[in-house]
Computed example of a mutant assay.
Amino acid sequence: MRAMVLQEGYGIEYLKPQDRPVVEPGPGQVALAMKAASLNYRDLATVTGAFGRARLPLVPLSDGCGVVTAVGAGVTRVAVGDRVAPLFFQGWFAGEPTPQALGTALGSPIDGCAQEVMVLSEQGVSKAPANLTDAEVACLPCAALTAWRGLFAEGNVKPGDWVLCQGTGGVSILALQFAKAAGARVIITSSSDEKLERAKELGADFGINYRTTPDWATAARKITGGRGVDYVVEVGGADTFTQSLAAIRLGGNIVVIGLLSGMMKDMNVAAIFGANAHITGITVGSRTNFEDMVRAIEANDIHPLVDKRFALEDAGSAFTAMKAGEHFGKIVLDIG
């Protein structure tokens, strides 16, 4: 079977196709014929070494969709023919995260979804929403679940709340879709007026171009009548966190998800307690969170936005497109 493997070094140029033997599932395991996989910023950082040196060789990508083709002895969660999504964390099933559970992520340290066949524990897969295509299912395990957990499992977004989403990548667009399904009002930021218009077509109530309006926190407060937003989906990191603090209402929530602009910056700690801010760091979620999200996706007929598609062997071009910020929503590899 074919796999895209990071070999010999770090960088998109080191991602190469490789033939690998197919492994039969053992007791408690399932074999998946992979149909699609999607890219996240984490995958780009892993391939380029931005998050440190992962072990090599490595098959990247944490998010995918597959069909069960064989099961080992004792498997009861799924059956041959079921369409499933591999879980981002293969060892986090419910409750609070543990260091052990957070060490079981696909795409590093465990080989990920950029391959034709995967063999995983039956505990590490969940049935896919019936209303989604394979490409759409492949957007769920990391990006969608991160947005879901931040807004609903850890947060409590209600009808009428104001949610500010930073940018138009996968997590932010899915957060927009989830928030609108819950009856919230959404402000979205981008450096592109074209992308802001596309976000409004998906339901965003207001858009702020942070290039032409660098003080977007003040603009967001003005939109909310001076009160501030209830939630910020914080994907920017070091360069946006201070403005997120300025944008929230007294007692508002910042859901810290990403670090696109960096990890470290001086921080005015007084601004945190002065805002009575609730700051929550989000590292994807558990299997229970995933299955709660699947029910909501089916009930509300929510469809992740797939913006660009590439063949498995063209994964390098997919990563190049992500690095250039060309996407709106998700980038997907078609596998089977």
Rank of each mutant, 00 (worst) to 15 (best):
F319E: 09
C139S: 05
T242Y: 00
P25T: 11
R309A: 05
T48S: 01
D301L: 08
Y231K: 14
V67L: 01
V171G: 07
S62P: 10
F152I: 14
L32C: 09
D307C: 11
G112Y: 01
I272N: 12
G11H: 02
G9A: 05
A270C: 12
C113A: 13
N300W: 09
A321H: 03
N253H: 15
F152Y: 11
F178C: 08
A247D: 09
M1N: 14
S62Q: 06
A50P: 00
R83C: 01
T133F: 01
T213C: 14
T146S: 13
E313G: 08
I187Y: 10
L87S: 07
T212S: 15
F88G: 00
F319M: 02
M263N: 10
I272L: 14
T242E: 12
A94P: 00
K195V: 09
A105G: 08
K127M: 03
W92Q: 02
V186M: 12
V229A: 07
L39H: 03
G251F: 11
G160W: 04
C142Q: 11
S126Q: 12
I335Y: 02
S191M: 12
A219Q: 12
V22K: 15
V256F: 10
A143P: 04
A147H: 04
L61T: 07
I272G: 13
D43C: 07
G49D: 01
N289Q: 09
A79W: 03
A246T: 01
Q7C: 14
G336Y: 04
A135K: 06
I279P: 14
A143I: 05
P57G: 05
I254A: 13
L196K: 14
V256P: 07
A33L: 14
M322D: 04
G81W: 08
K127H: 02
I248W: 06
R295C: 05
M118P: 10
I331P: 05
L61F: 03
A143L: 06
N131Y: 01
F51K: 00
A114E: 11
E194P: 03
Y10R: 05
A204I: 05
H303T: 08
D43M: 06
W148T: 05
I248Q: 04
N156L: 08
S190P: 10
S172M: 07
V80Q: 15
D205S: 04
L202C: 12
V229K: 09
G236S: 06
L312G: 08
V306T: 09
A311H: 06
A128P: 07
M264G: 01
E291H: 05
C142P: 02
V255T: 13
G91Y: 04
L56V: 00
M118C: 10
K195Y: 06
Y231L: 11
I279F: 13
D301N: 15
R249W: 02
V306A: 07
S261W: 07
A270R: 15
H303C: 09
L140R: 01
A79I: 08
T133D: 06
A184N: 07
L140I: 06
G225S: 12
M1Y: 12
K158G: 02
A37N: 03
A31K: 15
G72P: 12
R20A: 14
V23S: 15
R77A: 15
R227G: 03
R77E: 13
A147S: 14
A204G: 11
N209D: 07
A147C: 11
A219E: 13
L61G: 03
L174V: 05
T168C: 09
G103Y: 01
I257D: 00
T218V: 13
A33N: 11
P57S: 07
P60N: 03
I12L: 08
F290A: 01
E197K: 12
L176G: 09
H303G: 09
